[in-house]
């Protein structure tokens, strides 16, 4: 899986339009910073633990990519067909950045498995870098108060995610 594909797949997994839709009222810069940091830490942990984790569940790197692609497909189809979440009533501040913004809104199971697959194939550094780049649209969207999520935006990213999921699966299928 190329780094570009990993970045695009992670972007679709974190779907910035869905994150904006779920943005708690009174979101502050601290909230966004906490969400970003939490997500990146989780991505890093997944990437760092990918080797032992895959050994534990007897999965090869290519099969981990297939699993990540399938997870992305499921998450992407949800974004295409289901309504995005409503703004959370959670209290503003860093805590809201952790729950619910980072988890479960941004850090989806697809993002977790992509981090595992990326970590196994490319190592922790490149995977965290890919995650950081993929989170840029999320951060920008959350910081722009004027930006409102749209059903169409969520679905469009979901549709792209479905296509990217197919590419990730094929990458795993044809790999050694």
């Amino acid at each position: 899986m190329t780094l570009t594909l990993l970045i695009l797949a992670m972007t679709a997994a974190a779907n910035p339009f869905r994150a904006v839709a779920a943005r708690p009222t009174d979101t502050t810069t601290a909230t966004v910073a906490a969400a970003t940091a939490t997500t990146l830490v989780l991505v890093g942990l997944c990437a760092a633990g990918s080797g032992p984790f895959l050994d534990l569940i007897d999965l090869s790197g290519p099969s981990a990519r297939i699993a990540a692609g399938i997870a992305l497909l499921v998450v992407a189809l949800r974004d295409v067909f289901l309504a995005p979440p409503s703004p959370s009533p959670a209290p503003a501040g860093p805590v809201a950045g952790v729950v619910p913004l980072a988890f479960p809104v941004v850090f989806t199971p697809a993002l977790a498995l992509l981090a595992v697959a990326g970590g196994a194939e490319r190592g922790v550094g490149p995977t965290v870098l890919a995650g950081a780049i993929a989170l840029i649209p999320v951060v920008v969207g959350l910081l722009l108060d004027s930006l409102r999520s749209s059903r169409l935006g969520v679905a469009t990213v979901g549709l792209a995610g479905a296509g990217l999921a197919a590419l990730v699966v094929l990458d795993g299928v044809y790999a050694i």
Partner: peptide, 14 residues
């Protein structure tokens, strides 16, 4: 998601 993945990808008995 875990359920769908588990149905599609299984442990490899290597």
């Amino acid at each position: 998601v875990a359920g769908v993945v588990a149905v599609a990808v299984h442990p490899e008995g290597c």
